[in-house]
Computed example of a mutant assay.
Amino acid sequence: MKVVGVSACPAGLAHTPMAAKALMKAGDALGWDVKIEQQGSMGQINAVTAAEAKAADFVLIASDQKIQGMDRFEGKPVIRIDINMCIKAPEAVLKKCAAAVEARK
């Protein structure tokens, strides 16, 4: 499974990198390719390219904030998840998102 996404919180200093790292670590544990971009006061870190987005099975947005560059995810299933859930149970979040995407097919 190939997943791209964005994590963002109002300040972008704590929850943003925590969620990104947790999701990518959970992806490694599942044997999935997971890349999470961080958007916050530090700008964009680990930016997801349009090509990476196109190759992904789905896009995970770990935020309730406005995300910059959503146009690169056009045509892909986009799932928004509370950033705290991504920190607390990242593997469960990824599995649930993948199941939801599969159910839509």
Rank of each mutant, 00 (worst) to 15 (best):
A47I: 13
R104F: 15
C97A: 11
I67A: 04
L94R: 01
Q39E: 12
E52N: 10
L60P: 00
Q68Y: 10
L13K: 11
V4K: 00
G43S: 09
K35D: 04
E52D: 14
F73A: 00
G69T: 06
I36R: 00
D71G: 07
V34C: 07
L94N: 01
A51W: 12
C97K: 02
M18E: 05
A92D: 14
G43W: 06
S63T: 07
A99T: 07
R80T: 10
K25G: 08
C97H: 03
D28E: 15
I81D: 01
H15P: 04
G27H: 03
A56C: 08
A55R: 09
D64K: 07
V59N: 03
G12R: 02
G40Y: 06
V4H: 00
A51P: 10
A99F: 03
D57V: 09
K25Q: 13
K76V: 02
K88C: 09
G31C: 14
V78Y: 05
A99C: 08
V4R: 02
V3N: 02
G12D: 04
S41A: 15
G12V: 00
N84T: 13
V48W: 00
K25L: 11
Q65R: 14
K54F: 09
K105Q: 09
M70W: 13
A8C: 12
A99V: 07
A19P: 06
R80P: 05
S63M: 05
M1Q: 14
I87D: 03
I83L: 05
I45N: 02
G69E: 07
P90G: 11
D64G: 08
N46H: 09
V101T: 09
A20V: 01
M24S: 01
C86I: 03
D33A: 15
N84E: 12
G40V: 01
V34Y: 03
D82I: 09
F73N: 03
N84D: 12
A56F: 01
A92V: 12
V3D: 02
R80C: 08
D82H: 12
P90K: 05
E37R: 00
D57R: 12
A26V: 06
I45H: 01
I45L: 08
N46L: 04
A62Y: 02
K88M: 10
E102G: 14
V101N: 04
K25T: 13
I45M: 02
S63L: 00
N84C: 12
S41M: 14
F73S: 00
A98C: 10
E74G: 09
K96W: 10
A8M: 03
A20D: 02
R80A: 09
M42R: 13
K66D: 13
A62F: 06
A89K: 08
A55P: 03
K54A: 15
M42P: 05
A98S: 12
A53H: 01
D64S: 09
M42L: 14
Q39P: 08
G5D: 04
V4E: 06
I83Y: 03
K66R: 14
L94E: 05
S41W: 11
